[in-house]
């Protein structure tokens, strides 16, 4: 089994109100806010991208775990907005945290679930005794077409986890995945913005995979949902994870602590991992957490986690959620490089 030795979050400071986006495109702001359960989203600054977000999260994780970064044997960064098409984000992160050169690294892409896929790889390498510590990162500066439905949610942020064999703050008891070929959302090569299947992103994509992965994990580990104190689902908005919880009969209070999307938007590969970090920030020893990510295309990774001690993270998720500066739609289009010239 593997332990989480430490974790770090990072969310850019800029925010835009969802109602401001809706107003620009002639939609009903109240209806959009209410339908999606979103108030504002995090927007990267001009000098921020997935590499800088992943690095800040990774640095915070190293500080929290209080380990020698030279002992990190693997770094995997999951994102759908790696700044380079070819040249690994993970290598720059490794250099910036002082983990290079004796380590393996690769970038992952599986829409919003590439970060949890990295976590599974770190678990495998740690449990087989190949490495001492592994680092899994989920980070994104999500792209969205101006005026499209994704623009209300596509945000920026990330989280990094350091996985080791023992002596961590929480134990990852087991993991289970559910993957199929489902064309709910994609971005073709050299296209600036992704396309999506509208309502098709719901039932056959998000709900089928999240629910089956969650049920599969429970069956594999011989547990009931009642065993868990907190449940974290991938959060493209507030509506989807709330509805998934309802379908599974999970009481609302069990998903609340890990639901931060309302204030930061959908941070894609960062979303599930930031939700988990938010739960770990205040979790009590002995509490159990069930985590299920979702990546379009489509798949879900589920984890059963048992908290061993108080995290005492000096940079909790709340700190990043509350640190903000509002920008208007014009400034946002400049920052998100949506203006052609």
């Amino acid at each position: 089994m593997s332990d989480i030795l430490g974790y770090g979050a990072y969310i850019p400071k800029n925010r835009i109100k969802i109602r401001k986006i809706a107003k620009v495109w002639g939609k009903n702001p109240e209806l959009i806010e209410q339908k999606l359960g979103l108030e504002e989203k995090a927007v990267p600054d001009q000098d921020e991208d997935t590499i800088t977000i992943a690095t800040q999260a990774a640095r915070n994780a190293v500080k929290h775990a209080d380990i020698n970064p030279q002992k990190i044997g693997a770094i995997y960064t999951g994102s759908e907005s790696h700044p380079y098409a070819v040249k690994p984000t993970s290598a720059t992160v490794g250099e910036a945290i002082g983990a290079t050169p004796e380590m393996t690294a690769a970038d992952y892409e599986f829409a919003c679930k590439a970060g949890t896929a990295g976590m599974q790889n770190c678990m495998a390498l740690v449990e087989s005794g190949k490495i001492d510590y592994g680092m899994a990162i989920g980070a994104d500066t999500a792209q969205s077409k101006p005026g499209g439905a994704l623009e209300y949610a596509a945000a920026a942020g990330g989280a990094a986890y350091i996985i080791g064999e023992k002596d961590g703050i929480a134990e990852i008891e087991d993991t289970y995945s559910f993957t199929t070929d489902t064309p709910d959302f994609w971005r073709r090569k050299e296209q600036p913005y992704p396309e999506h299947g509208g309502r098709f992103t719901g039932k056959p994509a998000y709900f089928r995979h999240v629910i089956n992965a969650t049920k599969g994990l429970l069956k594999k580990t011989n547990q009931e949902l009642e065993n868990f104190d907190h449940i974290v689902f991938h959060q493209p908005n507030t509506k989807f994870p709330t509805k998934a919880a309802k379908k599974l009969g999970i009481p609302k209070e069990k998903i609340e602590k890990g639901l931060i999307v309302r204030k930061v938007g959908n941070t894609y590969s960062g979303a599930t991992l930031l939700g988990l970090a938010s739960v770990l920030d205040d979790a009590e020893p002995g509490e159990k957490i069930l985590v299920t990510s979702f990546g379009s295309g489509a798949g879900s990774d589920s984890f059963s986690i048992k908290v061993k001690k108080h995290a005492n993270n000096p940079r909790p998720v709340k700190k990043f959620v509350e640190r903000k500066k509002y920008v208007n739609y014009g400034e946002y289009t400049k920052l998100a490089r949506k203006l052609k010239r």
């Binding site: 800088t52 800040q56 910036a96």
Partner: peptide
């Protein structure tokens, strides 16, 4: 200190990262 993007060598070139500073949080 934080790691940020300093400059880009055009659209096809390298992206240059380096240190900047932010007010202490």
């Amino acid at each position: 200190e934080v790691l940020r993007k300093i400059s880009e060598d055009g659209k096809k070139g390298k992206i240059n990262y380096g240190y900047k500073f932010v007010p202490k949080s």
